[in-house]
């Protein structure tokens, strides 16, 4: 009994959760240890119960499934089977070899295949490691090609959603990015390069090795030294601008 595979189902729709539970009933080696209705609950339960496998819906209240995965610590990242009616993430998901991607309505035979794959990954540590690495790469690369419209950040037990319009600037800090808003600063484990790619280029610009700024928050730009400038943001924050950054800024803001 000790060796049962611990499963959490995360989906906001009760019938969808019941269907997965029903499909799992015939697999005696699986045990459902929790069900969650949104991403917040998901983060909490996963950190608390450390499941081996999760079934994860993408479209959910508060934060979506992908944002939820971003918030998990690397070591508590479980094997993930996505369950959604949207096929737009399927291709990337397969590309990065995540555990599996089930399209709703879920076909039972296809479901069996997915859990067999999960069993195999869980029995073999190196396949499992590959699967987890797949998820991590997926999260680093971004699951969708759309531009971000919000950032989801966890600090301790608190989860914060920052809308991109509210961003002042992003600052690189080792493995983290410091997210500056008018009122607060948050730490997010992510690279600046990722945000350079994922934020809308109409509003955001990399002006320095360590900074991306929100163009609509700039009040003025002052020379600092030869080949260095400073952008002064609406909240008074001063941001370093490199020579290349200044050239890009000039082009983007037409001055």
């Amino acid at each position: 009994m000790e060796d049962k595979i611990k499963v959490i189902i995360i989906d906001d729709e009760a019938p969808a959760r019941r269907l997965i539970a029903n499909y799992l009933a015939s697999s005696k080696d699986m045990e459902i240890i929790g069900e969650c209705m949104d991403g917040f609950e998901g983060v909490k339960k996963i950190n608390e119960l450390k499941p081996d496998l999760i079934f994860l819906d993408i479209q959910m209240p508060k934060i979506n499934g992908v944002e939820m995965l971003e918030l998990l610590d690397a070591e508590s990242l479980p094997l993930t089977i996505f369950t959604t009616a949207y096929d737009e993430y399927a291709v990337k998901s397969f590309e990065y070899n995540t555990c599996d991607y089930l399209l709703k309505p879920i076909n039972e035979a296809r479901f069996e295949k997915a859990i067999n794959k999960a069993r195999a990954q869980l029995q073999s540590p190196h396949i499992s490691a590959a699967g987890k690495q797949g998820i991590r790469t997926l999260l680093e690369e971004g699951i969708s090609d759309n531009h971000l419209d919000r950032l989801v950040i966890r600090s301790g037990n608190h989860i914060q959603v920052v809308h991109c319009n509210d961003l002042i600037c992003l600052e690189a800090n080792d493995d983290y990015v410091i997210v500056h808003t008018a009122k607060d600063q948050w730490l997010k484990k992510q690279t600046l390069k990722y945000y350079e790619k994922k934020l809308s280029p109409q509003n955001f610009l990399r002006v320095h090795r360590s900074f991306i700024i929100n163009l609509s928050e700039v009040t003025r730009i002052e020379p600092y030294s030869k080949d260095a400038w400073i952008a002064i943001m609406k909240n008074g924050l001063k941001v370093a601008v490199s020579k290349a950054g200044y050239a890009r800024l000039k082009e983007a803001m037409n001055f």
């Binding site: 729709e13 019938p15 969808a16 019941r18 269907l19 949207y86 709703k104 309505p105 879920i106």
Partner: peptide
């Protein structure tokens, strides 16, 4: 919206059991 149909069919699939 096709997702509306897919999600509804998924619900029906679940209801057939319960």
């Amino acid at each position: 919206n096709p997702h509306f149909i897919y999600n509804s069919l998924n619900s029906i699939s679940s209801l057939t059991v319960y």
